[in-house]
Design a protein around this nucleic acid. Structure first.
Lengths: 213, 213
DNA sequence: TAGATTGTTAATCGATTAACAATC
DNA sequence: TAGATTGTTAATCGATTAACAATC
């Protein structure tokens, strides 16, 4: 087991391993090795070993790792065996897609309420999650005590929404807008921004097209 | 202007600068500096300068950069002034959210068709983009000649979908599923996977909760 | 046993940050 | 002018990869 604190870069690779392992499990594969994971995910085999060492699992020389053991160790390390509660703000296209998506339950969070200020949406429910008026924010925070706020509002109200959440005791924010949020030091923010990825894709394709001609 | 090729890490920061600059432009701010961008986006000021240098813009000592000039330079560098065409496969929750989203037009791509094999969805249109049967894939590729395939299918058919796209001459794939796709060397893949971000968020919040108690 | 695989320490590589001269 | 800001070169830092002994 490696000492020292895990870096975000390492942490971000772990779900990829987990996903691959779940696929193996589904196909009833019992053992796998760092080299096999490496081959499929295009991560250097030494890196896979170092990353897996964080979870505390030990492999067996010549045999590798039991798929089930690795899955359990990863889920535990990622804290996906406990449940954090989340409220989602902004039931637009992306917001309702997330509400309808099942699959977070086994990934450490559960969405317990949604908020929007469109009267058409208030009172509806998505995947058993009810939509409340924005005014209910303080009350919902007090009664449900969610740790995570998921922001899927239009970008121009993302900061205002963040402020309301932090004022009411949120611990972390999952930001799906491209706005760079300003928060107090003790609030954890994770951004899911698709534009950086789009930028890389578009530039590489244009480069390729230019080269091909 | 810095020589050498731009790294993905640098490229990924550029849209963040652009987004911040567009906000300044909206507020009629005429000039800004690397230090101001640095302060708002939590990127080191030297890094902002290095990154911006890639676009070829020159600032004026003591004054900084014209917001409009920076925006133009970034858009041009990112190739967001030309349009690549994309087809989207999988009109589920996330797929239709993306089809309904306007905002890619000014980011280098335009979605020209969608595909799904649910008869309920075929023939519908989202935001003027028509949904076709999966069987139409080769025909659509031949007539529309899209460079990008956007994959928003269930994860277990993502690889199959990718194979169909590459066989029909796609240049790049924007993968919204958590599946690690296997593609020929000359195909560009960009993954938008929310699980790595979720992993970081969940672990940090759990760490914080443990520490607070 | 022989050899594949593990886990760790050392070397390399590249990205970030510090230092500083140039300039308006 | 003085000083804020630029742009670049050098130093640092951290992540990735190479090398290798241990082991089943």
């Amino acid at each position: 087991m490696v000492r020292g604190n895990i870096s975000d870069l390492t942490l971000r690779r772990l779900p990829k391993y987990l996903h691959f392992l779940l696929r193996l499990q589904k196909n009833n594969v019992e053992y796998t090795s760092a080299s096999e994971i490496s081959r499929h995910l295009e991560v250097h085999h030494t890196q896979v070993r170092k990353d897996l060492a964080f979870t505390g699992v030990r492999g067996v020389p010549k045999r590798g790792h039991r798929v089930n053991d690795l899955i359990e160790a990863l889920q535990k390390f990622l804290n996906w065996d406990v449940t954090l509660y989340a409220i989602l703000i902004g039931v637009g296209n992306f917001g309702s897609a997330i509400l309808n998506y099942r699959g977070f339950e086994s990934s450490g969070i559960q969405i317990v309420a949604a908020l929007d200020n469109d009267p058409q949406k208030i009172g509806k429910d998505f995947n058993r999650i009810k939509v409340f008026s924005m005014e209910k924010l303080p009350g919902l925070m007090a009664t449900l005590n969610p740790q995570i706020g998921i922001i899927t509002t239009p970008k121009d109200v993302a900061q205002k929404t963040t402020d309301a959440l932090t004022k009411n005791g949120i611990k972390g924010i999952w930001n799906f807008t491209p706005t760079a949020l300003e928060v107090p030091d003790d609030i954890i923010v994770e951004n899911v921004d698709i534009y950086p990825s789009l930028a890389v894709l578009v530039r590489k394709i244009n480069e390729k097209i230019t080269k091909d001609n």
